[in-house]
């Protein structure tokens, strides 16, 4: 038992494992023209399982698996915390590595403007890859309380109404604040909640007077307990023709543009990658996500949720993000007066 043999064996085996591991590291540097991922792609998710962007990431992964769109597995990696700060910082640390991507939602725009993390502007500090859709905002109320937007506006100019929204200093609150200014309402009470479902429930259960929410969050309660009375886009959505647009209410056109789906704020879902991702890798992801976008599953999903089916490739998405970020800075800092991070680069 005390002989030297087994020890030697152990050392050799460990060495073999080490060598193989080392070899696999070295083998990961192919220099071919058409790029393909050479190791599993990590989809870094900003929420816990079941959170907003987790759902989208896992949905896309499901489609990628089903249609075999990727030669390597795409693995979901949840890094929740700090309204996206933890995941963004992680993604930023993978500079130049094309095997790290992340789903986007609006907190990836707002969080870096508020918290001192390595990422500040998504469009500059990370690699935009694709935009998969736009999720419009609707002003949602309980039909037992308000039947129309006229009733709502009359009430909001009389008294302080209570709004429910997801998180603090994030998209919902920004839209609500902008609305308050545009329609000259009395200051709203803003009650932050953990997620879109809770927000819908707060209004459905009459714990809050209204929310601005995405159609898919409202639909389970529609039309008994929740109805949309105002939509923030140029034309009334065909799913909810009863929802007046904010343009019809004759507000200041600068405000109207800021609230609008196309030119202003909305929830967007897309994909970003680690900083300095090589061009051919970006192309590969663009093509893959284009195929995901075209699948009947994704099209059906967008239709069911009354989402706007847009698709943008990297360059277009980057340009969109620049404008989107500037809009956010404008509303958050100049209109609402929040203190953004003190090292904000001027643009």
């Amino acid at each position: 038992m005390r002989s030297r043999g087994p020890l030697l064996l152990w050392v050799i085996l460990t060495a073999v494992v080490l060598a193989l591991a080392g070899a696999s590291v070295l083998a990961e540097r192919p220099a071919e023209a058409a790029w393909q991922p050479s190791k599993p792609v990590e989809f870094v998710i900003q929420t816990s399982p079941g959170g907003g962007s987790d759902v989208y990431a896992r949905f896309w992964i499901g489609i990628i698996d089903k249609y075999k769109l990727s030669p390597v597995p795409v693995v979901p990696v949840n890094m929740p915390g700090g309204a996206g700060a933890v995941a963004l910082a992680h993604l930023h640390s993978k500079k130049g590595d094309p095997h790290f991507i992340s789903p986007t939602l609006n907190s990836v725009i707002t969080t870096p403007l508020l918290q001192k993390i390595p990422v500040m502007y998504l469009s500059e500090d990370l690699t935009p890859i694709v935009k998969m859709m736009m999720d419009p905002f609707l002003l949602v109320v309980n039909p037992e309380q308000f039947k129309s937007v006229e009733q709502f506006l009359a009430a909001c100019r009389q008294q302080s109404l209570t709004a429910a929204g997801t998180g603090s200093k994030q998209e919902d609150e920004i839209q609500i604040f902008a609305m308050q200014n545009a329609f000259k309402c009395q200051p709203f009470r803003y009650v932050p909640h953990k997620g879109g479902g809770d927000v819908a429930k707060a209004v459905a259960g009459k714990h809050a007077d209204f929310n601005v929410n995405q159609p898919s969050e409202m639909l389970p309660h529609y039309p008994q307990r929740l109805i949309p009375i105002l939509s923030f886009q140029k034309e009334r959505p065909k799913e909810f023709p009863e929802a007046t647009t904010h343009w019809e209410k004759g507000i200041n056109s600068q405000w109207a543009a800021l609230l609008d789906l196309e030119t202003g704020l909305h929830q967007m879902r897309g994909v970003i990658g680690a900083p300095d991702m090589p061009k051919d890798a970006v192309t590969w992801y663009e093509d893959m996500f284009r195929k995901v976008w075209e699948t009947p599953e994704w099209q059906e999903f967008m239709k069911k949720g009354a989402m706007q089916p847009v698709f943008m490739r990297s360059e277009e998405y980057r340009k969109f993000l620049v404008r989107f970020e500037n809009n956010h800075v404008k509303v958050m800092r100049d209109v609402i007066g929040w203190k953004l991070r003190d090292d904000l680069r001027p643009r």
């Binding site: 479902g197 639909l219 069911k304």
Partner: peptide
């Protein structure tokens, strides 16, 4: 019944409902 998850696990299942193209609610 409401499309609101009662627990984190149920939240993932809610995602499932959307993925399968179902609309939770009454």
């Amino acid at each position: 019944t409401l499309g609101i998850p009662g627990s984190p696990t149920a939240a993932v299942m809610l995602a499932g409902l959307f993925v399968w193209g179902l609309q939770p609610g009454p």
